[in-house]
Nucleic acid binder design. Structure first.
Length: 305
RNA sequence: GGUUCCAUAGCUCAGUCGGUAGAGCAAUGGAUUGAAAAUCCAUGUGUCGUUGGUUCAAUUCCAACUGGAACCA
């Protein structure tokens, strides 16, 4: 099995900084395991690493898509695996660094995403039913999938119906998998005491404002090739934290201060959800971030073990 | 200095005609297989400001004190 280093952790903990240091020491190249840093023109709000900060370390899946393009786990899985091979063929260590738990798990484990064509007509039809009706439909088609889907989670109920509609059942696809690691992956999680992390997150949002988050948003709205502004706000990329919150500001129903506070809160809530994922879905070796030297030393120890 | 009002969960407040209390927000835990920075689920013990008094029983009534607010001087 190919050796791999994975760096995870909540937003704001300092993953990028450590990934660079580790890449330098381990002769590695970095693949971003992140759902939003792939978008060009979305840099401040995604806390994207700058060219200078990269210090010449090659990065993949950063700045590769226009913000009106969709991006999914399946895309990430395919692209990341391709990049892993490329990096290994150069005799270097692939380092996945990011905060999107599902994406990272989908690469490391044998998640299978069948080829599928979206039946737009069927998809539109689903909108006509209530949550209860959709849930009952799914019970008939794929009862087993209900075990992990709550009736109110319409997004997932619809998705499971879509999967069934295009061929295999979601529960069958999952059952056929081994749920084993495909790589010799060392997963390192960077963490901070909750209060400290929240303080850092709040501060980071303030810094984003100082470095021009608002003008980044304005630019996105201006360059969007859409006649209807609502369509822009509905883009997948605009659902990101630090972006979606500005809709109310531009609609003049929220002040700038309220918007900033909301971004901070959503970021904190997100960090908590990330912990839930990393704690329960992946085998993470946690390192409490202290000084740079000590943290790096711990990371190298864990990797070499 | 005087009068009146307020003091209950991290915050804003409700409430108990005396039987130890509950909303919103925040927070916490969890689920997660093509939107995942998305979507969804669950969770409310707090010396009811302090000290006394009345009472079988006080967070509730009474008094003093402490802190705060408004008004009068």
């Amino acid at each position: 099995m190919d050796k791999l280093l994975v760096i995870v952790g909540p937003t704001g903990v300092g993953k990028s900084k450590y990934s660079i240091e580790l890449a330098k020491q381990l002769n590695g190249e970095i693949i971003s395991g992140d759902a939003y840093q792939i978008y060009k023109a979305m840099s401040i709000g995604t806390a994207k690493i700058t060219k200078e900060e990269m210090q010449g370390i090659p990065h993949y899946l950063v700045d590769e898509l226009n913000f009106d393009h969709p991006y999914s786990v399946a895309d990430f899985q395919r692209l990341a695996r391709k990049h892993i091979e490329t990096i290994i063929s150069k005799g270097k260590l692939p380092i996945i660094c990011g905060g999107t738990g599902l994406y990272i798990k989908a690469v490391l484990y044998d998640y299978v995403f069948e080829k599928e064509e979206v039946d737009e007509e069927y998809k539109a039809q689903l909108k006509n039913y209530s949550n209860e009706e959709l849930y009952e439909q799914l019970r008939i088609i794929d009862a087993k999938s209900l075990e992990t889907i709550h009736i109110n989670n319409r997004q997932r109920v619809e998705r499971a119906l879509m999967i069934a509609h295009s061929g295999k059942l979601k529960s069958d696809i999952v059952d056929e998998q081994q749920h084993k690691l495909l790589y010799d992956a060392t997963i390192i999680g960077l963490t901070l005491p909750r209060e400290q992390l929240y303080e850092k997150i709040n501060q980071r949002v303030n810094t984003m404002m100082e470095t021009g988050l608002l003008s980044e948003i304005e630019q996105l709205l201006n360059t969007a090739n859409k006649t209807n502004i609502e369509e822009v706000w509905n883009l997948q990329a605009m659902k990101g934290i630090g972006y979606k919150e500005w809709k109310n500001y531009f609609d003049k129903v929220a002040t700038k201060e309220e918007t900033i506070a909301l971004i901070q809160k959503n970021s904190r809530n997100f960090a908590k959800r990330q912990y839930t994922w990393f704690n329960n879905q992946l085998e993470v070796n946690w390192i409490n971030v202290t000084t740079k030297e000590e943290t790096l030393k711990r990371a190298l120890e864990i990797f070499k073990k």
